[in-house]
Simulated scan of single mutants.
Amino acid sequence: ILGVLAHISAYRDGGEWLDSLKSYLHGNLAHVAARLNAEFPAIDYRVPEGTYLAWIDLRGLGIDSSERMDALQTLLVEKYRVAIMRGDTYGPEGKGYIRLNVGCPRSKVDQGLDALIGALGELHAR
C-alpha cells in the first residue's frame, strides 16, 4: 500500500521536483559537452534530447577499434579507477562510443570527466 500511496503522491505533487531534476540533468549534460569539446574538439559531443546518458563518440579521436577501446578501458580502470561503459557492450552500433551516466551529483560527473579526459589525453598522445 505504501508504494501505491507514493505513486499517487508523486503524480499529484511531484511536478516541481521532476522539473528541477530534468533541469539538473540537462545541466550535467551541458557540462559534459563543454568540458569534452574544450579538451577534444574532434569529439563534437552534443547534448541529447531525452536521456541522462551521455553517449560519447570517440571515433574522431581514432578510438574506433576494439584494441583502442581496450586500451582506453584499461587506463580508466587500472590508473584512474573509473569504469565507464563501452558502447559495444550494447551492440555493434555502439562501437567507438562510451556511455557516461550523468544521473548523479555534478561532483561525480566531474570525477568521471577528469578520468576520461586524462585517459584520452594519454591514449591520444600514443
Rank of each mutant, 00 (worst) to 15 (best):
Y90W: 06
T89K: 05
L58S: 08
R68S: 14
R106T: 13
G103L: 06
L72N: 05
A71R: 15
Y80F: 14
T74E: 07
R86A: 10
T51A: 12
L100Y: 05
Y45G: 11
Y24P: 00
D57I: 08
S65R: 12
N37A: 05
W55R: 07
S23C: 08
G62V: 04
L58G: 11
V109P: 00
L36I: 04
H31V: 12
G121N: 04
S20V: 01
T51L: 10
R46N: 10
Y52F: 12
Y24V: 02
K79Q: 14
A33T: 07
A54P: 08
E78W: 06
K79W: 02
E49T: 12
G103D: 10
G118R: 02
A119E: 03
T74L: 06
L116S: 07
N101P: 00
S65N: 08
L53H: 09
F40L: 13
A30M: 10
S23M: 07
G50P: 10
D64E: 09
R46P: 07
L120H: 01
P92K: 09
R68G: 04
D70I: 06
D44I: 12
P105V: 09
I43M: 12
V109F: 00
K95V: 05
E93A: 03
L18Q: 12
N101S: 10
L58I: 03
E49G: 15
L21A: 15
L25F: 14
G60S: 09
W17D: 02
G87R: 09
G96I: 02
D44L: 15
A115W: 08
Y80E: 15
V102T: 14
E93Y: 00
L75R: 14
R46V: 11
G94D: 06
G50A: 15
Y11L: 03
T51G: 08
G118S: 10
G94Y: 13
A42L: 06
G14M: 06
N101Q: 02
V77Y: 04
G96V: 01
G103S: 12
G94F: 14
R99H: 03
G60H: 07
Y45V: 06
A34W: 08
W17A: 12
R81Q: 15
